[in-house]
């Protein structure tokens, strides 16, 4: 598991208060128990805090799996560095 995926897993565990969760990069967030769009937005805000990036509302629509979110984070960090 990459460090970023591990960080993401911790954020999701804290959010849902369920420490049995293990994220897989390509498994949709929707497969998580009780997951819905509210949690996705909350996760985005947690990610903003944790990784120091900002998302546009339009970007949330395209986040289906942890891989989508990690890709967005990576792109934003490249933009910040440039």
């Amino acid at each position: 598991m990459t460090t970023q995926l591990a960080d993401l897993t911790h954020l999701v565990r804290d959010l849902l208060r369920n420490h049995d969760i293990d994220l897989e990069e390509t498994a949709p967030f929707d497969d998580l128990p009780l997951w819905d769009s509210m949690y996705l937005v909350a996760l985005v805000v947690e990610v903003e805090d944790h990784f120091g990036v900002m998302f546009e509302p339009e970007e949330i629509e395209g986040i289906v799996t942890p891989a989508d979110l990690l890709r967005l984070i990576a792109n934003k960090r490249v933009l910040v560095r440039n």
Partner: peptide, 13 residues
Amino acid sequence: NNVHAPLTLTVLR
């Protein structure tokens, strides 16, 4: 996508 998510995002931030 255009109402609920932006509103929730604003509130959570």
